[in-house]
Structures are given as structure tokens and as C-alpha cells.
Design a protein around this nucleic acid. Structure first.
Lengths: 192, 192
DNA sequence: GTCTATAAGGAGATAGAC
DNA sequence: GTCTATCTCCTTATAGAC
């Protein structure tokens, strides 16, 4: 649906980046068209409205997230190692996080303020992480608290991203990631 | 500076609310003028540019934050009780946080994406909380870690606000606040 | 200090030629 | 499938009457 052809895919890819780096509202059709290298007129052949592009961008992010979570499940053997993959995105993506925040959290926040129809779909990207993390915590033996633990990790990582953007402090990111690793390990002792 | 007269103060107050509830970029002069009940023309008599209103709004938030922190310092005796005042804003303001997020964090995030000149001033509101919290942690005897602990509490509360907005989950807020209270108390044992 | 009227430009969106 | 030209609406901002 999102990648009917090459030009459509390029548009969605450029919109994805621009929505992340400058925001949904602040990104104009002209900006996306310029990034792809097509005219504004041609643009409307592929997407009728700005909301249609947003839907395609969220589709793209859903797919990319599913692929990333599947990769982590394939690479790392134990649940603790898999959850560590999630926590360490903060380190891997620290440069873009300090500049633009978390793509999931900032889009969700912006759409909430705009009272946009797609805010529920944006939260589904969050839900993908939440459900994946909860499944991993269940594997660690935390059946009853799995959902709460998943939300806790998600919240900690969102908070780190928010402050990292405000203060541009890389040491802070590393400190918080280290603290999260200690916290996670304390949950695994004797249960892994 | 911000409240030269009554109309100016009304404009800044209305802009403060609108910037929070719908975002800086998405709020137009017409929106603010309509909220105050004045014409767009009159508007420019008080503020020449949109950035000038933003500066005044940040000034207003800085003042309001200083006043709130001073109140907490006056009300609550021990450092633990004061820090609890901060943590419990999440409960007190849960309705608006679930709808629009944290006013400090969401403005900071939006200005970062816009690469706006005022993003540093928006981060100063964060710094007000950080410095105040750090001072309280020092009183608890955590001299060396005071800054790190302050950033940690700030990050936890930012993360809770971000996910509360995405999932509109009040129970989640209460759970995380309870966890923060336990964490804080563990830092106070034998040192308060 | 407040208003109406209006300028100048950019936004989303459309029509139709090639 | 891509383009240019255009439409309409809304934005920030100004001019000038009262």
C-alpha cells in the first residue's frame, strides 16, 4: 500500500525523515517535493492529502519497527539480552535523539496536541514496543508484572530522550542507560 | 516586561495556554486574538512578532515555576517532602498531562525540531527544576550525585508524561509515581 | 489603545497540457 | 507519470481611521 512504486516509496521515506526532524505540522508539501526532487503537482498524483502521507509514514514505521524487533529476537538469545537491545537504542541513536528526540514519542505528542485523527495509530507504534517488551518480561518469569515492567522501561527511555534533547548531554544518556542495565539485571537474577 | 498592562498580560496568558494545548507552530495570531477577545490589528500594538509572544510566554513560565518551587520550599519541611511535591505534579496535573503532555517537555521538543532560537530559553525552565531538585538532593546528603539524581527524577517524570499522553492510562501514572516514591524514600533512609 | 482594511506570501489542493 | 499554472484559504504583518 505504501510502496506502490518507487516514487511513492521515495516520498514516504523523505516525509518520514522530515516529519521526524522538523515535525509534521512544520513540514510542507513543497519541502517533501523538494527533498524527493519532484514538482508539487506530481506529488498529488501519489498522495491526495497530507494525512494520507502521514498514514503511509506510520505504516512505514510500523513495518520498520516490526522488522527491528524480529531482528533482536533472532540475534540475541536470552530475554535479558533482547531487552538490552531496546535499552541501547538510546546509545546507538544518541546523535539524532539529542537533535530531534525519539521519533515515536515526538510524533505521538505532536498529534495529541493537534487532536489529529491519526494519534491512535501513532500510539500503535508505541504499543508494538510495549507488547514486545511485555512478552520478553514474561519469558523472564514476570508474568503478572510484565505489562507494567514494559511500560516502565518504555517510560524511562522516553524520559531520557526528552531530557537528552533539551540538554544535549551525552554523559546523561550513558548514565541512565547504565542504570537501566543494572535495574534490568536485578530482575533477571535467578530467573533467567 | 511581559505584563506592561492588562491586555498584554491577557495575551501572554492566552498564548501560554494555546501553545501548551495545541502547540506553538499550530497556534495562530488569530487564535490568540479570539481567545483574548481583541482584533488581530490591536494584537500587533502589543507584540510585534510571534517570537516576541513566545519569549513572553517563556518569561511567564519561568516566573510561575520559580513561584511554585518557592511555595514547595515554604510548605514542606524536609527535603524528601519537597521532592515528593515535584513527583506528585504528575498526579495533580494528570488530566492535562494525558491530553497535552508536559508543558515544559513538549515545548522544548517542538522548538528543537523547529531549530528555533528560543529552544535554549525553553530548556532553562527545565534547568530551574533540575537545579532546585539538585539542591534538595544535596540537603539529603547526596552531594556528589545530586545533579545526576535531579536529572534522573526529571527524566522519569518526563517519560511518565510522554506515555500517559500516548496511552491515556491513569493507572500507569499512579503506578510510576508510587515507584518513584519508593525509590526516593530508599535514598532518604538514615540520611534525612 | 482599539478597530477595519489590506497587503504579501505560503499553505494545501486542483486542472489540464504533455 | 510528470509538469506548469492556478485556485482558495489562511498565515504573518502593516497602514491608517477613530
Amino acid at each position: 500500500m505504501a510502496d506502490r512504486n518507487e516514487t511513492s516509496a521515495k516520498i514516504v521515506s523523505a516525509a518520514d525523515t522530515l516529519f521526524y526532524e522538523t515535525g509534521f505540522e512544520a513540514t510542507s508539501f513543497a519541502d517533501i517535493a523538494a527533498a524527493v526532487g519532484i514538482s508539487r503537482g506530481n506529488f498529488y498524483h501519489h498522495f491526495k492529502t497530507k494525512d494520507a502521507i502521514l498514514d503511509a509514514v506510520i505504516d512505514r514505521r510500523m513495518e520498520a519497527t516490526r522488522a527491528m524487533l524480529a531482528d533482536w529476537a533472532a540475534e540475541a538469545g536470552a530475554a535479558e539480552a533482547r531487552i538490552l537491545c531496546f535499552i541501547r537504542i538510546l546509545i546507538v541513536n544518541r546523535a539524532s535523539i539529542m537533535a530531534y528526540g525519539c521519533p515515536v514519542g515526538t510524533l505521538s505528542a505532536e498529534l495529541s496536541k493537534l487532536d489529529h485523527a491519526a494519534q491512535g495509530r501513532a500510539a500503535e507504534v508505541f504499543a508494538l514496543f510495549r507488547n514486545w517488551l511485555a512478552a520478553e518480561f514474561r519469558k523472564l518469569g514476570h508474568e503478572d508484572e510484565a505489562e507494567a515492567l514494559a511500560l516502565h522501561v518504555l517510560a524511562r527511555s522516553q524520559g531520557v530522550a526528552a531530557l537528552a534533547t533539551a540538554f544535549r548531554d551525552e554523559d546523561f544518556i550513558r548514565r541512565e542507560v547504565a542504570a537501566l542495565e543494572v535495574w534490568l539485571h536485578s530482575l533477571c537474577v535467578g530467573q533467567n
